[in-house]
Design a protein around this nucleic acid. Structure first.
Lengths: 229, 229
DNA sequence: CGATAATTTGATTTTTCTCAAGACGCGTGG
DNA sequence: CCACGCGTCTTGAGAAAAATCAAATTATCG
C-alpha cells in the first residue's frame, strides 16, 4: 500500500504537495494541472502501488518510466503497459488495484485523487472532457496491446513494440529502451531469450542496429511497418 | 458503413426510434434508457459497423450476441470481445472505428449517439456516472482479456473463457456457446483445432461435459478455477 | 578491477499450428 | 419423414514456432 510509511521504508523523500503540470506540457496536464496533486519520487524498481491496494488515484509520469503489471500465482508476470513522461496510468474500475505499478528507473510521478477530479469536473467542462480522454486513451492502449498479443508472432510483436516506443518517444530514429529484455518479454508475452533473438533477427534484416542493448537505431522504418501491416 | 441503405440491402427492418431500456434491466440501461436510442435488428453474421466507419455511437445488446473484431491485412482476425444482452459495446477513442462489429446470431441492438449522451450528462450526474462506468467496464474487460492472451497456455485460455461466459450468463452450470470454435479461437489467439482439443482435454479431466458442441456443462467449477488461479 | 546482473547464443524439448481426413449435426427438399 | 449436402467439429500426424535449459559473453556498479 502506498503511504508515508512505505515511502519512508524505501528511503524516498516525502511526498510534497505541488501544483502539477507546471513542468509538463502534455494535453492531459493542462487540464489536470489545475487541481492539486501529490508529487512522488521513486527509486528504480520500487513500487508505486500494489495489487490489492485501494485504487482511486490516477497518476501522471513526470520523469522516468513506469511499468504496470499483474502477477499470476505461479510467478508469471504480464506487463500491461509502460508509461513515459506525460502519460497517465493507474485508472482502474475496481475499488482495489488489480495491477501493480513500479518505477523501472528512478521516476517522478504526480498523483491525483480521482474522486476529487470527478467532482471538480462537475462545473468544469474542460476537466470533464480531459478525464473522458484519459479513460478513452487507456482503453485504446489496452486494445492495441490486445491486437499485439492475440495473433502476432514473435517478430511482429517486437517490431510493433519498437515502432510504438519510437512513436511515443517523438518519432526519431533512436529508440531508448529503459526496460530490460525481461520487461519487454513480459509485455509481449514472450520469453526474454525470444525477444533477444528477434532483436537479432531485425538486425540481420537490416531494419535496426543496436547501438547498445538499451539503444536501438531504426534503420528501416518501412521494413518494421511492413511487419505489422 | 451503417445506414439505411446497408440495412435495406441486408433485408432488415428499418430502424425505429424507440425508448430503450423498457425491455432491458441492466444497470446501464436505467441511466441510458432516458435518452432516445435507435433500435436495430441484425441477421446472423451481418455487420453492425465496420473498420473505418465513423465512430460516435455506443450500443447496447438487447438480444442475441455481438462480436467485435479487427482484421489484419493477411486475414488473421482478433476478436476483442463478445457482448451478451444488457452489455454495451462500440466505445472507441478514434473518430473512425478501429474494429468492426457483427451479430453472431440474429440480434437486436439499441444505438445511442455518444455526443448526445455526453452533452445530456452535463446536467445529469447519474448519466455522467453511468457513462464513466461504461468506459471503465470496457477498460476492465480489455485488461482481463490481455491477461488471458499474454501469459496463458491454451488450456488456461479455454478454461478462463468458459468461466467468464458462465459468469456472464448468470453463473449456472450450463454454458451456451452461440459462437463457433473459430470465433472462440480468434478471441483466445488460438486455432480452432487447438480450442477443440482443449475442450476435449477439459472433458477428459472431468471438468466439463459437452451436451453438444455448443452447450457445455460445467461439472467441476473448482477445477476450472484452479487452472486460472 | 572484480563481482554481479543482463544479454546473447546454442541445443533440445514442448507447445501449438498446419494440413488432412473423417464424423457429426442440421436444415432443406424430395 | 428420411436422405442428402454442407458447414462445423473432432481427431490425427507432421511441421513450425517458441519455450526451456545451459553456457558464454558483455555491461554495470561498487
Amino acid at each position: 500500500m502506498l503511504n508515508q510509511a512505505t515511502l519512508a521504508a524505501n528511503g524516498f523523500s516525502n511526498p510534497v504537495v505541488a501544483r502539477a503540470g507546471t513542468s509538463v506540457r502534455t494535453p492531459a496536464s493542462r487540464a489536470l494541472g489545475e487541481p492539486r496533486g501529490v508529487l512522488l519520487s521513486f527509486a528504480a524498481n520500487s513500487q508505486i502501488f500494489a495489487q490489492g491496494d485501494p485504487s482511486g488515484n490516477v497518476y501522471q509520469v513526470l520523469s522516468g518510466l513506469v511499468r504496470v503489471s499483474r502477477l499470476l500465482a505461479d510467478g508469471r508476470r504480464q506487463i500491461s503497459g509502460f508509461y513515459l513522461p506525460g502519460e497517465m496510468f493507474g485508472l482502474e474500475a475496481d475499488e482495489t488495484h488489480q495491477f501493480s505499478a513500479e518505477a523501472v528507473v528512478p521516476s517522478k510521478v504526480v498523483s491525483f485523487k480521482l474522486a476529487s477530479l470527478l467532482s471538480l469536473s462537475d462545473g468544469n467542462h474542460e476537466l470533464a472532457r480531459e478525464l473522458w480522454q484519459i479513460a478513452l486513451r487507456s482503453l485504446t492502449r489496452a486494445q492495441s496491446h490486445l491486437m499485439l498479443l492475440g495473433r502476432r508472432n514473435a517478430l511482429e510483436r517486437v517490431a510493433a513494440f519498437l515502432l510504438e516506443l519510437c512513436e511515443r518517444q517523438g518519432g526519431g530514429n533512436t529508440v531508448e529502451l529503459p526496460m530490460s529484455r525481461l520487461d519487454i518479454a513480459d509485455y509481449l508475452g514472450l520469453t526474454l531469450e525470444t525477444v533477444s533473438r528477434m532483436f537479432g533477427e531485425l538486425k540481420d534484416m537490416g531494419a535496426i542496429a543496436l547501438a547498445s542493448a538499451r539503444r536501438v537505431e531504426v534503420l528501416d522504418h518501412k521494413a518494421l511497418k511492413e511487419l505489422i501491416a
